[in-house]
Amino acid sequence: MKPVELQIADYIPQLRRYARVLMRGDVVQADDLVQDCVERGLQRVSLWQRGTNLRAWLFTIMHNLYVNQVKRNMNGPDFVVLEDAQKDRHERADSDVAVNDIQQALNNLPSDQREIVLFVSIEGMKYQEVAKILDIPEGTVMSRLARARKQLRTSLVVEKRQTLRRVK
């Protein structure tokens, strides 16, 4: 069997995708998060139980890192202000670039809905597994998923249809 470090390496593309969804498409911020996640994973690799789902374990680490990061940012700026200011400017410059509709619609969802959409629609996970990663009841996973899909459908299908009708 592959050493666990190399098994973790196999999941890096999926971690990058998850991070990209969390960071609303910002590649630099997303890869920073992946780096933190992989480092944390490698440090704690002894805590992972062989035979259990490594993907879920890594996703849990990333979810927790993200949640902590958001909490930290809500506590007001610390003294990395300079870096953040640069990043903000960078982001604003990026947002001038046309983002396609689906990315925009996804970005408009709250992060807890974005990640559920990713887990279920893209990663094809069972609701139960998602509930475990996010540490919420399965019913909450389902109601958030329903809300997210409704919102995405509204922005991508319903509103477009209405625009088309108006044009006609």
Partner: peptide, 25 residues
């Protein structure tokens, strides 16, 4: 389902992106 397909189109190509050097283990 249309929405799901569009999500796949947006997010699946990320998997094929080469992993940057600094993220290699």
């Amino acid at each position: 389902q249309i929405v799901d397909r569009e999500l796949h189109q947006l997010l699946d190509p990320i998997i094929k992106e080469p992993v940057p050097d600094h993220l290699q283990i």
